[in-house]
Amino acid sequence: MTYEGVLKKMQTELGDPIQYYMVFDESFINVNQLLDKNVEINLLGYQCLNCGKKKKIFRQGFCYDCFYSSASVGDWIIRPELSKAHLGIADRDLAYEEKAQLQPHIVYLALSSEVKVGVTRKTQMPTRWIDQGANEAIAIVEVPNRYLAGITEVALKSHYADKTNWRKMLTNSVEHVDLIAERLKLENLIPTEVKEYFFLQKNDLYQMKYPVIEYPKKVTSLSLDKTPQFKGKLKGIKGQYLIFDDGIVFNVRSSEGYVVRINI
Rank of each mutant, 00 (worst) to 15 (best):
M125L: 14
S113N: 09
P191F: 12
P17Y: 04
P211Q: 04
G239L: 07
G52V: 06
Y210H: 10
W129D: 08
S221K: 13
E98I: 11
K99S: 12
Q132M: 14
L224E: 03
C51N: 10
S223L: 06
C48M: 05
K116P: 09
T120L: 02
M208W: 00
S223V: 05
W129E: 12
K8Q: 12
F250V: 01
E136T: 10
Q60P: 00
D65G: 08
V154Y: 00
G52Q: 07
Q207V: 15
L242W: 08
K233L: 00
G118K: 09
S255V: 02
I78Y: 12
Q19H: 09
K231M: 13
G239V: 12
K209N: 15
E97W: 06
V260T: 06
E142T: 15
L34Q: 03
E193Q: 14
M125R: 12
E153S: 05
T12D: 02
G236R: 08
I130T: 03
V107K: 11
Q11I: 00
N188L: 08
S27K: 10
F28M: 11
L156W: 13
M125T: 10
L156N: 09
N50W: 06
D65T: 14
I140D: 02
K163G: 01
R92W: 05
I78N: 13
D204K: 12
K202D: 14
Q201S: 15
G236E: 11
Y210M: 11
I130N: 01
V194Q: 03
I29N: 07
Q207T: 15
G133F: 04
S83Y: 01
R183W: 03
P17C: 08
K9L: 04
V119E: 06
P17T: 07
T120S: 09
I248W: 02
K233E: 10
K185M: 10
V174S: 05
V194L: 03
A134C: 13
S83P: 04
I180C: 00
E40G: 13
A137W: 06
A85W: 01
D245F: 05
K217H: 03
L170M: 10
S173R: 13
D25K: 15
M1D: 04
Y210R: 09
T123G: 02
Y64R: 13
K116F: 02
L102Y: 05
A100R: 07
E40V: 14
C63P: 03
A85Y: 04
T120Q: 00
S69H: 13
L156C: 11
V119T: 14
A100P: 00
K56S: 06
K54D: 15
I213W: 13
P104V: 06
E193M: 13
P104F: 04
A155N: 05
M208I: 14
L148Y: 09
G239K: 11
K116S: 11
P126G: 00
P104Q: 01
F62H: 09
K56Y: 03
S223Y: 07
Q60D: 15
Y108I: 05
G236M: 08
M22E: 01
Q47P: 07
G5A: 02
V174N: 10
N145Y: 13
R79C: 00
